[in-house]
């Protein structure tokens, strides 16, 4: 039974993104095959180029480690991308593949997981 981790926080000004990735890497190390969904402000985490000068470590480098933990694909809420003016092309060079989901598909994904952690 895999866990769904919902990334809903901006990467700036708090450590939610990093704390969520710590959980994901731990789950993966325990072979729990975590599933990731980027939603709301969380989609900003996928803009590695937009790294700002903050005292918090940028999550970009950790994303690069995901394939080593067998996390090859992450889900991204398409509506959230539109809301934050992010084009799908901007996600092309990420170390993980992004699969865009419609609102209905997001709903299905949430319903299909009994273990959900929101960050």
């Amino acid at each position: 039974m895999s866990s769904l981790i919902v990334m809903r926080s901006t990467p700036y000004g708090n450590t939610n993104a990093k704390d969520a990735l710590d959980v994901i890497l731990t789950l993966a190390a325990f072979e729990q095959e975590p599933v990731m969904l980027y939603q709301g402000l969380g989609v900003q985490q996928l803009l590695l180029e937009a790294s700002m000068d903050t005292p918090f470590k940028h999550v970009g480098k950790i994303l690069g480690a995901l394939p080593m933990y067998d996390v090859e694909t992450v889900y991204v809420d398409q509506t959230s991308l539109v809301e934050h003016s992010i084009k799908p092309e901007q996600l092309q060079d990420l170390p993980v593949a992004c699969q865009l989901l419609t609102s209905h598909q997001v709903s299905d994904l949430l319903h299909s997981h009994l273990h959900v952690m929101v960050f």
């Binding site: 039974m1 866990s3 809903r8 926080s9 708090n14 939610n16 710590d22 959980v23 731990t26 789950l27 190390a29 325990f30 729990q32 709301g40 402000l41 009994l114 273990h115 959900v116 952690m117 929101v118 960050f119």
Partner: peptide
């Protein structure tokens, strides 16, 4: 406890729920 305890709970529990809003 380490995060490993959380990972092991995801194996043994039927449901995992999160509390705490994102600001």
């Amino acid at each position: 406890a380490g995060l490993g305890q959380l990972a092991s709970a995801t194996v043994t529990c039927d449901r995992v729920m999160t509390f705490g809003a994102n600001l």
